[in-house]
Nucleic acid binder design. Sequence first.
DNA 1: CCCACGCGTTAAGAAACCGTCAAGATCCGC
DNA 2: GCGGATCTTGACGGTTTCTTAACGCGTGGG
Lengths: 226, 226
Amino acid sequence: MTRVLVVDDDRQLLRALRIALAARGYEVVLAPDGTTGLAAAQHTPPDLMIVDLGLPDLDGVAVVQAIRGWSSVPILVLSARLTEQSKIDALDAGADDYVTKPFGMGELLARIRAAMRRTTPADTPAVVTTAAFSVDLAAKRAVDAAGSEVRLTPTEWHLLEMLLRNPDRLITHQQLLQEVWGPRYSTETNYLRVHMANLRRKLEPDPSRPRYLRTDPGLGYRFVPD
Amino acid sequence: MTRVLVVDDDRQLLRALRIALAARGYEVVLAPDGTTGLAAAQHTPPDLMIVDLGLPDLDGVAVVQAIRGWSSVPILVLSARLTEQSKIDALDAGADDYVTKPFGMGELLARIRAAMRRTTPADTPAVVTTAAFSVDLAAKRAVDAAGSEVRLTPTEWHLLEMLLRNPDRLITHQQLLQEVWGPRYSTETNYLRVHMANLRRKLEPDPSRPRYLRTDPGLGYRFVPD
DNA sequence: CCCACGCGTTAAGAAACCGTCAAGATCCGC
DNA sequence: GCGGATCTTGACGGTTTCTTAACGCGTGGG
């Protein structure tokens, strides 16, 4: 899922953006000031950032420069400032686009789509490797220890991704079912057993004795790295 | 030198742009209408395009769509129109940015720099060769193993380019549909099946058993090099 | 000891998806 | 306008994937 980080101190705008973006299937992370925004960008790297120029602590341009020091994530700058120079400064600091308040939500969403469209190339490796298999979550590619390709179905990818993104952490039946099948299926633990068995058959050295995809009886599953 | 193609019918604006861009070291090509602009884009492929929405012959959106059929050159749209929908349409047609008239020359230049900054670093090899075919993405030329030329349609080029630029990497249905047909078509997986079949018939040694353009059922397609 | 329960395993039918084809519709140059 | 190329659209059968149900196994409690 595409993650969007919004850095803005206008609570009303934050709320509107969260609703509009979530409705389009984006994952939304909010930050009320520059410091929090920079921390969030490091902690949970977003696929796109929206930054207000008028922040309470740092200047928006400073935030853009700080991000550009280590990331090439698309940045969309918002501002109520009308001067041309502020636009030039923001764009030359490394912003990808500049939108003047007030703006229409439809336009902002279209600009987000335009920015996302440009960032397909091999950016995030997102590779998890163990002694028995190696999985590239971004490329949706899995290979076993011998190096031959392993084919996984959509459901298997979805399950595996949740587990691999949370190494050593228990993921409950409910969490898995809600994420993969939706909120109505939180009791169908049958599905989990079947698909986990398929995953193990494809990835575990000894499927009947899982080494990496472990069961926590009565609770859920977890991925245990080497 | 960076070549900029400006498509606009406002003589005064053309003149101002030519002077301002030339002063910054850009090579400038001017076109007074959409037809001339499209011809110029084919004849002398620019590194960036500036297109006015209100052209005498074609709609600017149509020009953007036509360009996007075979090229991913950055496109900056100019317009005096104020409606939000016209911005959304232009951006979704494949434009990279939208600037409302009247605008400051400094802002336009900053937006040009921002657009150029995004494209320059990630230049992928323009020629992809396998045992069965060889494709020159820049020259839009494909030849089979025997060396005879293969004719591909604009849609086929667009699809093939996305796959070839991301070897071994899965490209989802959504990504392909959004890139080639626009965000409104993200459910028309029918299109993909038809055009992928055509591509395979033209490029694969055994089209019914794809070796290079592979299907990941339920997910998307990927290009697997030798 | 027996039973209830959760888990892993398997297999078969249902559903979704894919490749293929061909008939319109549309767009293009001439 | 005309004719060719390209794209859209709908239908069909084959394949993959998902769902569903049944069974075996081990554990722990009665």
